[in-house]
Structures are given as structure tokens and as C-alpha cells.
């Protein structure tokens, strides 16, 4: 029953993805300073998205959908790596302002 197996994989992987998203949010709420919060967000979120994408991939009908999912994750990683550095640097300059 390959269908059933794919469904189980989707259920497990999207569940793990959700846990990481929740971890990112909990970190964003609980961590004591701007930079630690940025850690939580960058790492946990993109891992969460990775698992969701992987889980969705088990429901794909053809390879182009799989490749699109991969592209989405790659672009999200690129954005995350950039945004984390830029926002951390801006926060370093702005510390104490507002």
C-alpha cells in the first residue's frame, strides 16, 4: 500500500514541521534579547518550512511539483541567511533606539 505509506510520511513530516514553527515562535517570545530571538527565528523556521515542504512532496503528482517545492525552500533559505545578517547588523546599530 504505497499510497498509505506516502500519507503516513506526509502526516509525520508536516507534524515535525509544525513543531519547529512553534519552537521558533516560542523562542521569539521567550528569548531575552534581540539577537537570541533572531537565532530562534532563522533556524527553527526554515527547518520547519523544510519539513512541511518535504511532507507536501510526498503528495506531489509529478517531478515538476517536487522541483518547485525544492526551489521554494532554497529561495527561503537564501532569504533567511540574508535577512538574519542584515537585521542583526541593523539591530546592532540601532540598539537602544526607539
Amino acid at each position: 500500500m504505497p499510497e498509505g505509506l506516502a500519507d503516513i510520511a506526509t502526516i509525520v513530516l508536516t507534524g515535525i514541521g509544525l513543531v519547529f514553527f512553534l519552537a521558533g515562535t516560542v523562542g521569539l517570545i521567550r528569548f531575552p534579547d534581540v539577537f537570541s530571538r533572531l537565532h530562534a527565528l532563522t533556524k527553527a523556521d526554515n527547518l520547519g518550512l523544510g519539513f512541511i515542504v518535504l511532507g507536501a512532496g510526498f503528495q506531489a503528482d509529478d517531478w515538476t511539483q517536487l522541483a518547485k517545492l525544492g526551489l521554494i525552500w532554497a529561495l527561503a533559505l537564501l532569504a533567511a541567511g540574508t535577512v538574519a545578517q542584515l537585521v542583526a547588523r541593523a539591530a546592532l546599530r540601532q540598539e537602544g533606539r526607539e
Binding site: T42, K43, L77, G81, A84, Q85
Partner: peptide
């Protein structure tokens, strides 16, 4: 810097000259 930001415990904040700032 981008990779470090996704690895355990490190977060880059760009560089100052050729010195990488890592939180």
C-alpha cells in the same frame, strides 16, 4: 555568514572590514 546563521548556536551580523561578527 548565511550558513552560520542556520547552524547551531551561531548568527552572523555581517562583517566589519574582513572581520566577521558572530553572535
Amino acid at each position: 555568514g548565511a550558513e552560520l546563521s542556520l547552524m547551531p548556536g551561531t548568527l552572523a551580523a555581517g562583517s566589519d572590514g574582513s572581520v566577521l561578527l558572530v553572535h
